[in-house]
Design a protein around this nucleic acid. Structure first.
Length: 484
DNA sequence: GGTTGTTTAAAACTCT
DNA sequence: AGAGTTTTAAACAACC
């Protein structure tokens, strides 16, 4: 990617902080995890400056790994030889860097996780977060996290995703993440939190990949569910009917809509109350990552309590709106109040991932979220005014130089790997056996050259593609998932 | 003994 | 100027 002169600083200190360098290294790895020594190697390979004084900067780098919440230590699996742990990026640290550029950090990333690890349904916040992270990471391995025209998309194992979908729809809740054909409990063999015990499942896609689909679908459905919960039965019937007619995919997705015509239109209103992580009662919200009650465990999709039907409702749903949390027409404000007569909880949701999926509307400034897209379409943060990057000779320490002004940044020919063939059925199990093998295959696949457009019309280069946004990424995943 | 990882402290630096 | 961030140094523990 044309990050300015990324490989061309020579002996000069590159304008990246240790955090940026480390994040860069980790992101470059196919599975978004790297050992300490691999991070060292990555930095030294690309930036000759760091081939000297290794003890100094490596100490600093280790300090950053430990000190900053954005770096998450992941234990090696049993079949992953090597020293020390692997390091990955925290799943919600994506916007740490301004406009996706490693040059500037928007703000310090801090998790707001509780001091004590809170166990929910046998899964702590931390573990759950890691699970989701791993799932997201692994989803990339089978094309779930790649751009639309990535041929690996066609290799997704339909059967397993279908099973994942079924499991999700039968158990629409947070807590444990079911894996296709293998309902898991934390601590059991094969649970992704015990990756070293991953079972051999011949012909089956990696559990994480399937779990990613489940987690992904779940996050979208959470927002959808909260809206459905606020709708009257009349509205719901209309919406379901309209949506099923307009979007045939809903006819094939059992459970997406509660069966409004079913005789039992009961909703468990107790579910409006829940135990939050600190044990306090709080309101039901789309982003709460609560475990289900034992009753909920076997319940179907919650259905709103009967209120006065509104037969003329024109509400209907689309996949896009479910994903983005936008529904047409807009929810009436009174709905919110009528459902939540008590004062809204001021406690912030712990799980921002789900909140953003449920409510966030795409902004123009959204950037690509997938590694391939980041590589292909980086944005370069432009300093407000030209700044002198020359360091005085007697600088007592080698501070990271400020980013060069845009005019100093030369468009570059960039290469990035793009897998063109990946058969998840035959290859995923093998990858589980050998991460190194996977890595080798990844590196050996075709390298596509990307030519930076030599345009001067925009200072942010290259121009954003139409689909270059997080909503697309989200939508593409669900679309793929549902069209199987 | 070298590597990895955590922690404390403080100086240097940036931003508002 | 003060708050916040980054860099550097160093002590120390755990591990192989």
């Amino acid at each position: 990617m044309p990050r300015p002169g990324r490989d061309s600083y020579g002996d000069q200190k590159p304008p990246y902080s240790y955090i940026a360098l480390t994040a860069m290294a980790i992101q470059s790895s196919p599975n978004k995890m790297m050992s300490l020594s691999e991070i060292y190697r990555y930095i030294m390979d690309r930036f000759p400056f760091y081939r000297n004084n290794t003890q100094r900067w490596q100490n600093s780098l280790r300090h950053n790994l430990s000190f900053n919440d954005c770096f998450v230590k992941v234990p090696r699996r049993g079949d992953q030889p090597g020293k020390g742990s692997l390091w990955s990026l925290h799943p919600t640290c994506g916007e740490m860097f301004e406009n996706g550029s490693f040059l500037r950090r928007r703000k310090r990333f801090k998790t707001n996780s509780p001091q004590r690890s809170v166990i929910q349904n046998g899964v702590s916040h931390h573990a759950l977060s890691r699970y989701q992270h791993i799932a997201n990471v692994r989803s990339g391995e089978v094309g779930l996290n790649s751009i639309e025209d990535n041929p690996s998309y066609n290799m997704i194992n339909r059967h397993n995703l279908y099973q994942a979908q079924q499991q999700l729809l039968n158990r629409p809740r947070f807590g444990t993440f079911p894996t296709p054909g293998f309902p898991m409990k934390p601590g059991m063999m094969g649970h992704p939190l015990n990756p070293q015990y991953l079972p051999s499942l011949p012909g089956m896609q990696s559990p994480e990949a399937a779990a990613a689909a489940v987690a992904y679908f779940r996050s979208a459905m959470t927002g959808f569910q909260s809206v459905v919960n606020k709708m009257s039965v009349g509205d719901l019937q209309q919406a379901a009917l309209a949506s099923r007619m307009k979007y045939p995919v809903f006819n094939t997705l059992q459970g997406v809509f509660p069966n409004a015509n079913a005789p039992n239109l009961n909703i468990n209103m107790e579910s409006k109350q829940e135990l939050s992580s600190d044990g306090l009662k709080s309101e039901n919200s789309p982003c709460s990552s609560r475990p289900p009650s034992s009753d909920e465990e076997n319940s179907t999709f919650p259905i709103p309590s009967p209120t006065s039907p509104k037969p003329n409702s024109k509400i209907n749903f689309s996949i896009e709106n479910i994903i983005s949390g936008r529904f047409s027409p807009k929810e009436p404000k009174q709905d919110e109040q009528s459902v939540s007569p008590v004062a809204p909880s001021k406690k912030r949701c712990q799980n921002h991932d789900f909140e953003s999926n449920a409510k966030r509307i795409r902004r123009d400034t959204d950037r690509a979220s997938t590694p391939c897209m980041l590589e292909a379409y980086p944005k370069v943060a432009l300093p407000k005014s030209p700044q002198n990057i020359i360091q005085p000779d007697d600088t007592p320490r080698t501070s990271t130089p400020k980013p060069a002004v845009f005019s100093d940044i030369k468009p570059q020919l960039v290469t990035f790997p793009l897998r063109t063939n990946f058969n998840s059925t035959t290859e995923a199990p093998r990858f589980r056996d050998s991460l190194a093998e996977y890595s080798a295959l990844y590196k050996s696949t075709k390298v596509v050259e990307y030519n930076h457009p030599k345009t001067s019309q925009s200072k942010y280069a290259p121009p954003i593609q139409e689909n270059d946004d997080v909503t697309f990424s989200a939508f593409a995943k669900l679309k793929r998932f549902t069209e199987l």
